[in-house]
Amino acid sequence: MRSKIAQKILDETPLETRIFVAKYSDLILRINQILKKKGISQKELAEGMDKTPAEISRWLSGNQNITLKSIAKLEAELGEPLIEIPLKAYSTRFKDEWERFEVSFTVEKRVNTISEDINWIKEDVRYA
């Protein structure tokens, strides 16, 4: 059972909006995850990027289109990738008689601890 009004709104929501919301929330989670892992506050992140905390918040506010350049700046400051382009199982011939395949996938693991401790395990598996 779901609220009829909410379901109607969801049904009318353009797919691009739902994709945007998913990407934006993933980005926020990823940034928070890295900040927490590295023990960096949003304020310290802002200082490192020579921005004000308000500017960083606005970057991450969802209402402004965060640019690829901004993401690159954040990745450089955080030292970790924020977004990855899914090049699904592409193959490249790089040597006679050898063909390289690259695949990536995400593993979601259910744990019995509080949400902060839930670990998202991401692995890149390379076959060569």
Partner: peptide, 11 residues
């Protein structure tokens, strides 16, 4: 509103 509803249900 559409973003919010998507955030509630999807995310």
């Amino acid at each position: 509103v559409q973003q919010l509803v998507s955030f509630i249900f999807d995310t």
